[in-house]
Design a protein around this nucleic acid. Structure first.
Length: 573
DNA sequence: CTTAGGG
DNA sequence: CCCTAAG
């Protein structure tokens, strides 16, 4: 809680630069006073195009920065997704280049920062919590896969930034930066010199990365944290399978692998070139479907004087023109990319049917109510990142448009999160709530032909969610979804009452389907969601119970609810 | 706006 | 999940 000051520093962020091909890397001394923006750019192998980091990336970085502020370290980017992403990009006929820059932050940021620092006092800790949680619990996180980054050498971000603490200090790399200028052949030599063996890999990026790693081989242990965490989860959950956990494990494994790679580079040569984090089907689907998608990212600035000053004005981009496309507004801007003028489309998505409100206005009106939300938004604004912005916007809008529980909700969520994670198990929640992830609205929306937008990722219902639902139904009765949503699901901003209803419907189906066969529940062939038998039983009980009559309990609560009649302290007035 | 159902 | 009809 006494991090307030640092938070501010965090806001100021630090500079992270992954250079272009001919970039001379200049890492700022990642102190507390650098620049909030993280520039990233990936050179797509082959066509030499540049692919900026995604906004989700930024989110990740956000987490990174949080840690950063305490450790001032930089994590080496695994950059595995590079290959896949680049493919995706080119195959989908995307505009080769997109970017957004967090340049305009100079003014607004400063002001907001101050306000924020106040609120952050309370929320930051939980924010951090959320962030790390996200990384562990969000299987479908786009950022996870979309991460195209690969700092040619010391790529700065890590997918696991959220929970990696012992990050390697790549500031040492300054001396090695010149790798960029080397030819592949030269790189091979360097490689040999570094590892004492030859390599057949022709991937320049890879070579550089490896060499860099070899030279700095300091990142070997950090996955420990994550792994431990996951193992922990697994143990406590061994019986119930929550999609999230499994995913978590996978992730951490990746992480481990990644790190082992740093040491035992055996056989890595070949794999390395295509060492890619496998994108999920969903993701692929998404990418292809999203034709002119919203990759937006930070554009690299000329490597020259990065990090020296908080924000060189030359990095400012100037809007070139705007045009709208299927409900999205595409802003083409001219960025000064290391001296080159490049037009990059920026996509601002707007949530359908949600009244659009001025985010900045929101910030000012409820400055004290939104902790990380504000942070995100601010950052989003700073960066002009479409993803970020839209995401944040959605969040805010969602929160704000929820009648009766406006801004507080978010705070509540954060707290709830923290407590549920800390306490771990409470009340009936024997099942650990791995999904305290209220914070990440990773929900991807997809524009429909009709002009609509539909949510793409089915947000898997976690056990805890299901349990809350059941509990809610038992308390308030099935059918009173809005009540349940408001009371039992206060912490889950997503999950509309309709969602609850649908889920309940499914639960009923499920419970009745396998009730007759006691064992059927567990022995069922790994269907997507193995709902613990007990829960199903409970569901059925409730179902039957309510089929007969709206339990006395219900009517009681009903009365008290509707009882605005006169029962509210008749005497007091 | 909230529910219920169908898709 | 989405969409829509109905209260």
């Amino acid at each position: 809680m006494e991090k307030v000051v640092e938070v501010e520093g965090f806001d100021e962020g630090k500079f992270e630069v992954t250079g272009l091909e001919k970039s001379n890397f200049v890492l700022s001394s990642t102190k507390h006073v650098a620049d909030p923006v993280v520039y990233k750019l990936v050179r797509v192998d082959g066509n030499g195009r540049l692919v900026p980091a995604t906004d989700d990336e930024l989110m990740e970085v956000e987490g990174l920065l949080e840690n950063e502020k305490r450790e001032a370290h930089i994590v080496a980017d695994t950059g595995q997704a590079l290959g896949c992403t680049s493919n995706e990009v080119s195959s989908s006929g995307m505009p080769q280049l997109e970017s957004s820059e967090g340049l305009s932050l100079s003014e607004n940021t400063e002001a907001d920062t101050e306000k924020l620092s106040t609120q952050l006092e309370e929320t930051v800790p939980s924010s951090a919590q959320c962030l790390s949680d996200d990384h562990v619990t969000q299987p479908g996180s786009v950022g996870e896969y979309l991460k195209p980054l690969d700092g040619p050498i010391q790529g700065g971000s890590s997918t696991y930034a959220g929970y990696i603490n012992s990050k390697p200090d790549f500031s040492k790399l300054k001396g090695e930066i010149c790798l960029d200028n080397l030819s592949i052949k030269e790189l091979h030599e360097v490689f040999k010199a570094t590892f004492g063996r030859d390599t057949t890999v022709k991937d320049k990026l890879w070579l550089k990365r490896r060499i860099t790693m070899g030279l700095t081989n300091s990142w070997k242990e950090y996955p420990a944290v994550a792994v431990e965490y996951n193992v922990d989860l697994l143990n406590s959950l061994s019986s119930q399978i929550d999609e999230h956990q499994t995913i978590s494990v996978v992730k951490s494994e990746n992480n481990v692998v990644e790190n082992n790679l740093a040491n035992e580079d055996l056989a890595a040569d070949q794999r390395a070139a295509k060492r890619v984090r496998k994108p999920t089907k969903r993701y692929i689907e998404e990418l292809s479907e999203a034709e002119s998608k919203e990759y937006s990212g930070r554009l690299i600035a000329s490597p020259k004087n990065i990090g020296i000053r908080p924000l060189p004005s030359i990095y400012h981009a100037r809007p070139a023109r705007n045009l709208s496309l299927e409900g999205r507004t595409i802003t083409t801007r001219l960025d000064s990319l290391g001296g080159f003028g490049i037009q990059v489309p920026c996509v601002y998505r707007v949530r359908r049917s949600r009244p659009r409100k001025n985010v900045t206005a929101l910030l000012k009106f409820h400055p004290s109510d939104m902790g990380m939300t504000a942070t995100f938004i601010k950052r989003g604004l700073d960066v002009h990142g479409s993803h970020m912005v839209s995401e944040s916007m959605n969040k805010v809008l969602e929160v704000n448009s929820t009648p009766g529980q406006t801004p507080q909700q978010f705070v509540a969520e954060s707290n709830n999160e923290k407590s549920s994670t800390d306490l771990g198990q409470n009340m009936e929640l024997k099942y650990v709530d791995t999904s305290g992830d209220t914070s990440d609205d990773n929900v991807v929306t997809v524009p429909t032909a009709k002009g609509g937008i539909r949510r793409k990722h089915h947000r898997a219902w976690t056990l805890s969610e299901v349990m809350k639902l059941v509990e809610g139904v038992s308390k308030y009765g099935a059918g009173r979804w809005s009540e349940i949503k408001r009371l039992a699901f206060a912490s889950y901003s997503y999950r509309t009452s309709v969602d609850l209803k649908d889920k309940w419907r499914n639960l009923l189906k499920a419970s009745f389907a396998q009730t007759p066969t006691d064992k059927g529940a567990n022995s069922r062939k790994h269907p997507s969601m193995p709902i613990p038998a007990p829960i199903l039983l409970r569901v059925r009980e409730l179902a039957e119970m309510q089929a007969q009559g709206p339990s006395p309990n219900l009517s009681a609560s009903k009365l008290s609810a509707c009882g605005s009649v006169n029962e509210t302290r008749p005497g007091y007035l």
